[in-house]
């Protein structure tokens, strides 16, 4: 009984896990907000930027989950997404500006 009384109210590990859980919820809320922007628009560039922001949120969630589970392999996900995340943005941008995403020959 005395030992519990003397122990700190919140251990360091416990604190980390609570913060990570809270951050996960926060990022999920951010996804909700970005989702609103994608759905409402009003222009396509708005939607694309919001979608890109969601991708960034996914990176954050992967890292947070890596912290939560203490398994570094989830960082791989964020790395991969970080590398290729801009591909979709570029594609949409090209679609909007030029109307032709992959060009061929002398067209």
């Amino acid at each position: 009984m005395i030992a519990t009384h003397l122990a700190p109210l919140v251990t360091a590990a416990d604190l980390t896990s609570r913060v990570v859980d809270g951050a996960l919820v926060f990022v999920a809320l951010l996804c909700l907000l970005c989702g609103y922007r994608v759905i409402r628009g009003p222009t396509i560039p708005d939607r694309v930027v919001a979608l890109d922001a969601i991708a960034t949120n996914v990176i954050a969630i992967a890292v947070l989950f890596a912290l939560k589970t203490d398994r570094g392999l989830f960082v791989t996900i964020s790395i991969v997404l970080a590398i290729i995340g801009f591909l979709s943005t570029v594609t949409v941008a090209k679609y909007v500006t030029e109307g032709d995403i992959i060009t061929r020959g002398n067209e």
């Binding site: 969601i54 996914v58 589970t69 996900i77």
Partner: peptide
């Protein structure tokens, strides 16, 4: 584009369900 949100959300779902391979594949 809205389908894209669905895809990302499902990817997050895979992460939270402890499936790193799935999340990777889903995102790409």
């Amino acid at each position: 584009l809205t389908l894209g949100i669905l895809g990302f959300m499902v990817a997050i779902f895979y992460i939270l369900a402890s499936g790193p391979d799935l999340a990777l594949t889903q995102l790409v």
